[in-house]
Deep mutational scan, measured.
Amino acid sequence: SKWSPSQVVDWMKGLDDCLQQYIKNFEREKISGDQLLRITHQELEDLGVSRIGHQELILEAVD
């Protein structure tokens, strides 16, 4: 995926409302499409996504 960080942010805006709070962290870390495809629970935790349910929603959406 050749998504830029801004495309990742646009994609996140289409996800569940409960995930919108994390967008600024993804933006700050400039998460690209390639990074998103390989993202782990630990990396999500580092991005402030501490709730497992929220991590799962992001990982499922990526899949």
Rank of each mutant, 00 (worst) to 15 (best):
S1P: 04
S1M: 12
K2D: 13
W3R: 05
W3N: 05
W3Y: 04
W3P: 03
P5T: 15
S6I: 10
S6D: 15
S6G: 13
Q7H: 08
V9D: 04
V9E: 07
V9I: 13
D10L: 08
D10S: 11
D10V: 07
W11S: 02
W11A: 00
M12S: 02
M12L: 09
M12A: 04
M12T: 01
G14Q: 09
G14W: 00
L15K: 06
L15Y: 04
L15F: 05
D16R: 04
D17H: 09
C18F: 02
C18I: 06
C18V: 11
L19V: 11
L19I: 11
L19P: 04
L19T: 05
Q20C: 07
Q21H: 08
Y22V: 02
I23V: 14
N25Q: 11
F26Y: 01
F26G: 03
E27L: 09
R28A: 13
R28T: 13
E29K: 15
E29N: 10
K30L: 09
K30C: 11
I31E: 02
I31N: 03
S32R: 10
G33W: 09
D34E: 15
D34Y: 11
D34I: 09
Q35S: 08
L36A: 00
L36I: 07
L36F: 03
L37S: 12
R38M: 08
R38P: 03
I39D: 05
T40G: 11
H41Q: 13
H41G: 12
H41K: 15
Q42K: 14
Q42T: 11
Q42A: 12
E43C: 07
E43I: 06
L44W: 00
E45M: 12
E45P: 02
D46Q: 14
D46M: 13
L47S: 02
L47T: 02
L47C: 05
G48D: 04
G48A: 01
G48Y: 00
V49G: 00
V49F: 01
V49R: 00
S50T: 15
R51F: 14
I52Y: 12
I52M: 12
G53N: 15
H54T: 01
H54C: 01
Q55T: 04
Q55I: 08
Q55N: 00
E56Q: 14
E56H: 11
E56V: 10
E56P: 03
E56F: 07
L57P: 02
I58W: 03
I58P: 04
I58D: 03
I58A: 02
L59C: 05
L59H: 04
E60G: 12
V62M: 05
V62D: 02
